[in-house]
Write a protein that binds this DNA or RNA. Structure first.
Lengths: 230, 230
DNA sequence: GCAACCCATTGAGCTAAATCAAGGGACTCA
DNA sequence: TGAGTCCCTTGATTTAGCTCAATGGGTTGC
């Protein structure tokens, strides 16, 4: 399939294609795929939410900024993930391609229409938002109360769980990870080094983005869990 | 109306009463009101979610714990607020009464039933969850990237906005505020003192829980906003 | 080839917030 | 009435993580 590559933020439909954000949304017609170059903005905070997106290839970061440039990444979106889904009519995050990324687009309008007609679709919408909420709640605990090494361990476990592969290939830089974990990139680097020295993981390439987890149990010990259940 | 006071966590219905979590839920019959003493647990994290609650009087804190006791309060629920609303069947937070609190209860079951029948109810459910998500997203930015004074200023603005009254009467201790903002209670105390010295606020009582905001504009200057819009 | 980036690591020193510590007012309750 | 408990404030000290700085390997583009 032909895919346009552009830095223009406004998506141009490349093909009409059946929409498959999830199996429940199958009947909705999407606008096809669109490619974003590394570092490109997909949509901006407070812009009108026109589309909903699904990552086909690549990775996306969603973040909020403060006026002086401090950045908090709220989530990374990997292959298969849906992002830009809003209940209100404005985006609450800016979304950028972490690496060259292909996304499927659907008009928010048509999704809301489908949700109004079909309770299965609206149920799926609700559980999607709920998953986002759960993630944010866990992340608040991480940001408010965990140490640097605990945060990095939690991040690795999250990524390991989401990618599923034996070795992880992180698409994002240390700075991205830092802005996700509420740290600086130096602190992330030091935490990763200390985990490597502890034998928990091995770097496989020069950039140290390819990471092999040697001992998930030991890694999990670095990330404290909630209190034991009665 | 007679209200039972108890420390037993399992609610006993005191009256049958029309349910009014929101106007859209009017037709659902609630289980009436229930009173929790200061410091009482209303429900625990990972317990089955049987009820949904609305604060009639008092205040509630929702929090997660780490195994070593570190606590992150995710939200305070004030009069009128609904809490304990779950899409899944387990609570994701522990909820405790901050002060003596009266709550209205409704069976989650009957709410879900109503949502399945009535799109207005399910729409309200969705927008309620969305508001929670929005709050969590903003709180991630606060926890990940704001300084102590900025966090406390943001907290005061949030409380001021939610209570609406001219003077604020905070129901929670400095420790509660600290666990909400990812700080220690000493740091919260110091930040409040420095805002007082800056003339932004005045303490009205001995416990310094009654706070008068002298200059909301100046207070807002302590809490950095997102980047200017184009 | 080589300059210009970008990204990562590591060391040295600094600082914002945590920790430790003392003190005091208000309330409860025996 | 007075001991005990909470809660808050403030001061002194420590420390986890930030800032600043140097280095080095890829990659890109001329």
């Amino acid at each position: 399939m032909f895919v346009r590559i552009t830095t223009d933020r406004r998506p141009q439909p490349s093909t009409l294609d059946e929409f498959d954000l999830t199996s429940a949304f199958d009947r909705i017609i999407g606008l096809g795929e669109f490619t974003y170059r590394k570092g490109t903005e997909i949509f901006g905070e407070k812009e009108p939410a026109v589309y909903v997106y699904q990552v086909k290839h690549g990775a996306v970061r969603s973040y909020k900024l403060l006026s002086d440039g401090r950045r908090q990444i709220g989530a990374f979106h990997l292959v298969g993930d849906i992002f830009g889904l809003e209940n209100g009519d404005k985006h609450r995050f800016t979304a950028e391609a972490v690496v060259e990324t292909v996304a499927r687009l659907i008009k928010r309008e048509s999704l809301q229409l489908a949700a109004a007609r079909d309770t299965v679709v609206s149920q799926n919408l609700l559980s999607m938002i709920t998953r986002n909420l759960e993630h944010a709640e866990n992340h608040m605990l991480l940001l408010g109360r965990k140490t640097a090494v605990e945060r990095v361990a939690a991040f690795l476990l999250e990524m390991d769980c989401r990618t599923g592969a034996d070795k992880m290939s992180l698409p994002m830089t240390r700075l991205d990870i830092a802005d996700y974990l509420g740290l600086t990139f130096e602190t992330v680097s030091r935490a990763l080094s200390s985990l490597r020295k502890a034998g928990v993981l091995t770097f496989l390439d020069h950039d140290q983005r390819e990471i092999m987890l040697n001992d998930r149990r030991q890694l999990a010990d670095f990330d404290p869990q909630g209190p034991a259940q009665p």
